[in-house]
């Protein structure tokens, strides 16, 4: 792995994870979760785990986001409080 790239990606991952759980708009939270998964896929490619990387890009960033948006379209968009 390449340490500067690793540190930069992990910094963004922590920031995006905190943003995803603090926002009140659930659609924004889901999109942030998708960005989180994509950055995680970048971390895995950079750590030489290429198979995990493309599985995460397809399943984590793709399928899970689609499932969550499908569930959100049947429920409420805004979180209370």
């Amino acid at each position: 792995m390449i340490i500067p790239i690793d540190l930069a990606l992990l910094f963004f991952i922590v920031v995006i994870a905190i943003a995803a759980i603090t926002t009140k708009d659930l659609l924004a939270a889901i999109v942030l979760l998708s960005a989180y998964s994509f950055l995680m896929a970048c971390v895995w490619v950079e750590m030489n785990a290429v198979d995990v990387g493309f599985t995460e890009a397809a399943i984590g960033a793709g399928v899970t986001t689609a499932f969550m948006i499908a569930a959100l379209s049947r429920t409420a968009r805004w979180e209370e409080k």
Binding site: A17, A20, I21, L26, A29, I30, L33, Y36, G60, T64, M68, A71, L72, T75, E79, E80, K81
Partner: peptide, 14 residues
């Protein structure tokens, strides 16, 4: 700690 069930699932994924 979050009250919303979808938010709980997002936390679980993280």
């Amino acid at each position: 700690a979050k009250g919303n069930l979808l938010k709980k699932l997002i936390g679980l994924t993280i």
